[in-house]
Write a protein that binds this DNA or RNA. Structure first.
Length: 568
DNA sequence: TCGACTTAGT
């Protein structure tokens, strides 16, 4: 960092501490045109004996915003760290915490730990950030052991400390540890701490123990918004979105204003439950009437429920929230998209745009993929146009497959007309198109013709398409019998496709059969470990879950959600 | 004096 000569402004004011801003105002900008302006610490006791020493030509505002924004690269964090080390600020636990967290964000846990070690004056924030860094990088035992060290240190853990550890327990599916830490929090007098309790509610929900979550919630006399949201999300992800709706009403009754988290929690539950994919029929305005809710709860015949119902819920909920974030928008848009209410999808897309928010690639891709199921080219083009205008086209090509759905069969017919002979690849494309469009009947027909009419033996990829196509439309048994007609060992991609369908359709019995088979033949494959552990979790077999999880390394240690546990 | 607890999707 280049040192600048003393500025006239600085010498003039040298007898009294000055704010960087006033220094700037006094015409220093010409001198510091290139290098912002000099700063000094606001606290008198930090100042050296000389009245003013210019340490660096960087303003606090800049430094703070640099430290608070997430640094995109490790190099940048290292530069900032090196900069701080040249100043007395590196001793300050506040700045040490900021740097530590930036290292953690960039997955450099060793450097984060180094910062922690080198900081002698450790605030609760510093401890918590280090514990969180360990937990988020899946170093569960380091997190717990640091937590234990903290218990013996001369600083007391607070609600956030316990929240970090509790979350780590849930992420690690360690129910026993969760109970112990919960007990510890109560013993430490944090049993009613709002932050700690929010984490507990989320953790218990994540383990499929939403009733336990509710018990934690019930002990709090005046739950804050985060606690409400945690519980509502817990119900949503546990398949009990209707209870979530009741909590939502209760929440408004006591005057708590819902926010984006509330809505996302509700919507996720509704979307997950598949209620939205149900057709038309019932028309009513009394969205929250007990009568209607009863009807919905007691009805197993989902076809009686209508998109009107969920549409009204959504709009109501949405309007009651002032400033929905992208997660909320996306949850809503995805809900409409999956429900097939595409005019709403486009309406919200435009609205999102007008509010100066930008849909990200995942949202656009998801919407396109789900429009693909309707094979509506016009809509697809409109959304695709949106993607192009926003420079998202590179990421959404998978969503554009719907065009090939429609075109594939036309091309195929033309091929035959011209006397061309289709080959294996031709049928791959056709079956792929059927998969994307959910065209079960066409798929079956093409698969049959392929062998009978054109004398082509299906390869593994053709079976994968068929299994996906059948499985995702609920024809699990048919998919399984197709597989059983094959000689052993069955290609793992085929079995994997069926397993994935079993999981998403909630058929745990068949899923376990398939998973065991896969697991036996492919012991090194993490994907099947995760799917299998998901099944074990559903049966509360936490020891089995942990055993599998311990063998998984890297990014895949993050487990999928367990939303079906409570409902199954 | 400042930070932190809760949410989705190909």
């Amino acid at each position: 960092m280049q040192q600048f000569p003393w500025s006239p402004a600085a010498t003039k004011c040298s007898s009294t501490p000055i704010e960087p801003v006033s220094l700037f105002a006094e015409g220093a900008d010409s001198i510091f045109a290139d290098q912002r302006l000099c700063f000094m610490h606001k606290h008198q006791h930090h100042l050296p004996e000389v009245n003013i020493v210019i340490l660096m030509f960087i303003p606090f505002e800049w430094l703070h915003s640099e430290l608070s924004n997430i640094c995109r690269s490790l190099l940048r964090v290292k530069q900032l760290h090196a900069f701080l080390l040249k100043t007395y600020l590196s001793e300050d636990p506040f700045y040490a915490t900021k740097i530590l967290r930036q290292y953690a964000v960039n997955s450099d846990i060793n450097s984060a730990h180094h910062v922690f070690d080198k900081t002698s004056d450790r605030s609760v924030y510093l401890w918590n950030s280090m514990i969180r860094a360990f937990a988020q990088s899946q170093r569960f035992f380091s997190a717990i052991s640091l937590f234990r060290t903290m218990l013996g240190a001369d600083i007391s853990p607070d609600g956030h400390t316990y929240a970090c550890v509790i979350r780590a327990c849930a992420d690690n599916f360690d129910y026993g540890m969760l109970r112990r830490v919960h007990g510890g929090a109560v013993a430490a007098g944090l049993g009613l701490d709002p932050v700690c309790c929010s984490a507990l509610v989320t953790a218990y929900s994540k383990l499929g123990l939403v009733h336990e979550a509710r018990r934690v919630f019930n002990r709090i006399t005046e739950p804050d918004i985060v606690l409400w949201n945690s519980l509502i999300s817990g119900y949503g992800s546990s398949g009990l979105w209707d209870v979530g709706m009741q909590m939502f009403s209760a929440m408004k009754l006591v005057g708590k204003k819902p926010d984006g988290y509330t809505l996302a929690g509700l919507l996720v539950g509704i979307v997950d439950s598949g209620v939205l994919s149900i057709g038309q029929g019932l028309h009513t305005n009394s969205v929250f009437s007990p009568e209607l809710r009863l009807r919905v709860q007691s009805s197993n015949d989902h076809s009686k429920m209508s998109s009107t119902f969920t549409y009204l819920i959504r709009i109501r909920v949405f309007c009651s929230i002032l400033n929905p974030d992208l997660v909320t928008w996306s949850a809503l848009i995805m809900g409409y998209s999956q429900a097939g209410v595409f005019e709403k999808v486009l309406y919200l897309f435009r609205k999102l745009n007008m509010e100066d928010r930008k849909a990200d690639t995942v949202l656009v891709a998801s919407v396109l993929a789900s429009i693909a199921r309707t094979a509506n080219v016009g809509l697809g083009c409109e959304v695709h146009g949106y993607a192009l205008r926003h420079g998202l086209e590179l990421d959404v090509r998978s969503g554009m497959l719907f065009l090939i759905i429609l075109e594939a069969f036309k091309v195929f017919e033309k091929m035959l007309e011209k006397g061309l002979v289709p080959d294996e690849a031709t049928f791959s494309s056709l079956l792929s198109a059927c998969c994307h469009g959910g065209l079960v009947k066409d798929g079956r027909e093409i698969f049959r013709r392929m062998e009978e009419e054109f004398n082509i033996r299906p390869r593994a990829e053709h079976y994968v398409y068929m299994v996906k196509l059948l499985g995702s439309s609920g024809e699990l048994e048919e998919a399984y019998s197709l597989i059983r007609s094959l000689p052993e060992p069955v290609d793992k991609a085929i079995l994997g496709a069926l397993l994935s369908c079993c999981n998403s359709r909630g058929n745990s019995e068949l899923a376990e059969t398939v998973a065991q088979q896969l697991f036996a033949n492919n012991p090194a494959d993490n994907v099947y470990r995760i799917m299998l552990s998901n099944i074990y979790a559903g049966d509360g077999r936490w020891d089995d879950v942990k055993m599998l999880r311990d063998k998984i390394t890297g990014r895949m240690r993050k487990m999928p959600g367990l939303s079906w546990i409570e409902s199954s």
